[in-house]
Computed example of a mutant assay.
Amino acid sequence: MNYTLHQLQIFFKVAETKSITKAAEELFLTQPAVSIQLKNFQEQFPIPLTEVVGRKLFITDFGQEIVKAAEKILNEVHAINYRTMAFAGELTGRLKISVVSTAKYVIPYFLAEFMAQNKGVDLIMDVTNKARVVESLEANEVDFAMVSVLPKQIKTESVELMQNKLFFVGGMQHEKLNKPIKKEQFEELPLIYREQGSATRNAMETFIKGNAFSIRKKIELTSNEAVKQAIIAGLGYSLMPLIGIKNELRTGELQIIPIAGLPVVTTWNLVWLPAKKLSPAAMAFLEHVTATKETIIQQKFKWFEEY
């Protein structure tokens, strides 16, 4: 057998994502490149590693054994790299963060300088809904999580970062308004919701329930980008975080529709478990965020004050 570390890495990522397309995206490779390397890797084994059933990719029992072996090998390679950098006096290790989908517009700014200064640190970041973020934190799968509403079911330590403002948003098809819409006007509008488990959905449901609004029509989508495009296309209206619609507000593709009780204002927090033994890389990142957050907010998010 003559497989390479590159092929092991690709096979492991395909097994992890159960998708050639997703593996290619996460590895910053083209889909054909991943398919070719996966085929070359498979040719070195007499037993199938994967199978496709109903257009879905599955890892065979034998493939799962190879996945376990590949993970051990790749971890050893990472360890060698970290030891080499540590010997040279560089900060090394993995930084694992899980963030709610709206936070993907915020957290990169708090990471950029830190990652540039510490090239021996590998970043693994999962962008998902609040329910999954809390699960990964509770299961001790990550160093930090970033949420706009602190989880009540688990005890956490936290650092406040910046405000999260949610407004009621419509597209160009809605007339421009200078005064808040009335209850009966709101109830005539088709609404677009995020999926269950989303903090944005929870905020929208709480707002509607608190005002005793009736719902005329409901559409459910699984990402803020999907909601944004649906609003632009004229499918409906939704409560959206300001952070994700800056450009569309300025180009006029979206508009904030005034309504009493809005915006909903929460705060993004970087959170971690009190009992978590933070690695040197995680501790260094926490210190970096604490020391630089005010400067980053002033430099990158001063436009928030316009709304």
Rank of each mutant, 00 (worst) to 15 (best):
L177F: 02
T200S: 14
L123F: 15
G197E: 13
E187M: 13
K179L: 10
P180E: 04
K155Y: 05
A199P: 00
M115W: 03
H174T: 12
I192P: 01
N202P: 09
F207T: 03
V142H: 04
N211S: 14
A145S: 13
Y193I: 09
L177Q: 11
L111I: 08
V169G: 05
F114M: 05
M115H: 06
S136G: 05
N118C: 06
L150W: 05
F168N: 10
L166T: 04
V169P: 00
I192R: 01
N129Y: 12
Q173W: 06
L111F: 08
N211A: 10
A199F: 08
G170T: 03
K176Q: 13
V142Y: 02
L177E: 06
K182S: 15
Q153Y: 02
I192Y: 01
V149S: 15
F186A: 07
G197D: 13
V142L: 05
H174R: 07
F110G: 00
I192Q: 01
G170V: 01
R194G: 10
R194M: 02
F114Y: 08
S158Y: 14
I192H: 02
L123I: 11
N211P: 09
G210F: 09
T200Y: 06
K182C: 08
L191C: 13
M204I: 12
S198T: 08
I208A: 04
V159K: 07
A199Y: 00
N164M: 14
V127C: 14
E113A: 11
E184Y: 09
M125D: 03
Y193L: 09
V142D: 01
V121E: 08
R201C: 07
R194W: 00
R194N: 13
Y193E: 07
D126H: 05
S158P: 00
N140A: 13
G197S: 11
F167T: 02
F168Q: 08
I154A: 04
L189A: 14
K119T: 11
I208V: 15
M125Q: 13
E138V: 00
A199H: 05
F114C: 05
L166R: 04
G171M: 13
E184C: 10
A145P: 01
L189I: 11
E188K: 14
S158R: 03
S136F: 07
L137D: 01
L191F: 07
A145F: 06
L161H: 02
N140E: 14
F144Q: 00
K130H: 15
F186C: 07
I208F: 10
T206P: 02
F167A: 06
V133P: 01
M162H: 00
V142A: 08
M146I: 15
V142S: 03
D122M: 10
F168G: 01
N140W: 06
R194F: 02
T206L: 13
H174N: 13
G210L: 01
E135N: 15
N129M: 13
K165F: 14
T206D: 09
I154Y: 09
T200K: 00
G120K: 01
L123K: 03
V133E: 05
L150P: 03
V127M: 10
M162C: 11
I124G: 05
T156P: 03
Q196A: 15
L191N: 05
V121I: 12
M115L: 15
L189K: 06
M204Q: 15
L111T: 03
G210V: 04
F144Y: 13
D143A: 09
T206E: 08
I192S: 02
V133A: 13
A139F: 02
Q173M: 10
F167C: 06
A203N: 09
